[in-house]
Design a protein around this nucleic acid. Structure first.
Ligand SMILES: NC(=O)c1ccc[n+]([C@@H]2O[C@H](COP(=O)([O-])OP(=O)(O)OC[C@H]3O[C@@H](n4cnc5c(N)ncnc54)[C@H](O)[C@@H]3O)[C@@H](O)[C@H]2O)c1
Ligand SMILES: NC(=O)c1ccc[n+]([C@@H]2O[C@H](COP(=O)([O-])OP(=O)(O)OC[C@H]3O[C@@H](n4cnc5c(N)ncnc54)[C@H](O)[C@@H]3O)[C@@H](O)[C@H]2O)c1
Lengths: 203, 203
DNA sequence: AGGAGTTTGTGAACGGGAGAACAAAACGAG
DNA sequence: CTCGTTTTGTTCTCCCGTTCACAAACTCCT
């Protein structure tokens, strides 16, 4: 989030910023921001603030997005199409190297300049491109099988959009994005507001 | 997550389950699950476990998804199309009542059985359908303006896919889904694995 | 050079979630 | 009816993220 805020500030021509400004831009408390940044090193100047470009590079280096990460997307349905066409990944250090789908009727298609390939090609694509990050956008029933195959092929980080709990070996990272649950959380707070007006907790 | 796990168990024909089973299905610790459920009430039977159907209803009621929530989606680009076509929302208690876009060339289109309408129609749609939840899938630069207008129209919960920090009045709920940040978190752990093998923290 | 004004970096207090552990409750067998 | 078994509900403790508050460090002005 700080990296994103810094990129925004840099685009606006800001060269220097205080922890207060940066925290406001990122939407967090300034003490938290300073403490977070202090874990990376002492990149600020007391009485002055942080150099936007310098701090931006330092955070990017720490996160590991100074070079591009190759990514494969599996499941080129509604969501897979959107992800493949999303330009934001490219500009944030990720490069989609392949789109895979189990459905042979999809293999003719070209999406975002890449042709949809067979899921069978996973292993060769992963080893040829040194891919370590995979995105799962298949139906929930297929997600575990896809994940198993990804892990076997050498992928060690998975972003899962399917609403299912994935079991993976130790050392493999998984993050889950579950849109229905996000909506349900909103609905819960809505209901609370309706039931107990005045005592709602706006988080 | 528990609700989803319960639905899965119910589909498999399970009528009763222990906190241990349910926790394993949902991917959490059983003590945490019991504590979470205890906030809703005492719906289990000691020595037996939980009745799947009963607990499912109780959780759905507590969350507020026993009836459908109307939802509007603003920004029918790549992501908006995917969301509009997603059947999972409907089956989890959400009903997309309108698709809005500022671009007039999109207004001819029909997506998922709904025609894309002008953003100008927001106010009338919200009041006619009693909509309280809005989804933002526009570019980041437009997100704040869209949010302001949503709030003015009466929407009190926003799910934001644009990578920007939204400022909203007290009492309005906002949740953010940021796919790039999810990937960056994965990349960070990847880099740590590469730099310090053996000391990785698989979360 | 020195003092006033800023802003960082960090120690200390706070709050809350997560897990271990156990008493209370339900059930079935004898 | 009683005892043993199972499983919940809850307490207690630990740990970690967040925030406050302040000394240290830097700039600028006189
Ligand atoms: N569309 C959305 O906006 C949205 C929102 C939230 C969650 N999701 C979740 O994302 C996932 C994908 O959603 P969608 O709407 O794109 O579904 P979809 O049905 O449109 O697409 C799924 C694709 O996966 C492919 N597939 C199926 N099994 C496969 C396998 N074993 N290996 C490789 N590919 C396989 C199918 O051929 C299809 O092209 C689902 O789990 C859904 O719940 C989607
Ligand atoms: N496509 C993805 O997979 C993806 C992934 C992550 C994040 N996002 C984010 O989601 C948002 C949408 O992405 P996208 O790929 O669908 O972009 P897109 O450009 O394909 O679609 C954006 C749509 O919003 C409409 N729009 C623009 N300004 C508007 C306004 N003021 N009011 C109403 N509608 C407006 C445009 O006409 C367009 O149809 C972006 O903020 C993007 O960063 C997208």
């Amino acid at each position: 989030m700080y990296l994103r805020a810094l990129i925004g500030l840099a685009e606006d021509g800001t060269t220097t910023c205080s922890s207060e400004e940066l925290a406001a831009t990122a939407g967090v408390n300034s003490a938290k921001l300073r403490k977070d940044l202090s874990y990376l090193g002492s990149y600020g100047t007391r009485g002055v603030g942080y150099d936007v470009e310098y701090l931006r590079y330092q955070i990017a280096r720490e996160i590991g997005v100074t070079h591009d990460w190759p990514v494969v997307i599996v499941g080129i349905g509604n969501l897979g199409h959107a992800l493949a066409n999303y330009s934001g990944f490219r500009s944030r250090g990720f490069r989609v190297v392949a789109l895979l789908d189990a459905d042979p009727t999809r293999h003719d298609e070209v999406v975002a300049g890449l042709d949809v390939r067979s899921f069978e090609d996973l292993e060769s694509i992963v080893s040829d491109n040194d891919v370590s990050i995979g995105v799962i956008a298949t139906p929930a029933v297929a997600a575990q099988a896809v994940a198993d195959r990804m892990v076997a092929a050498g992928i060690t980080s998975i972003l899962n959009f399917a609403p299912s709990v994935l079991a993976v070996p130790e050392g493999v990272g998984v993050r889950k994005v579950d849109l229905s649950i996000e909506l349900q959380i909103l609905a819960y707070h809505e209901q609370r507001k309706a039931v107990a007006p005045g005592s709602e907790d706006a988080s």
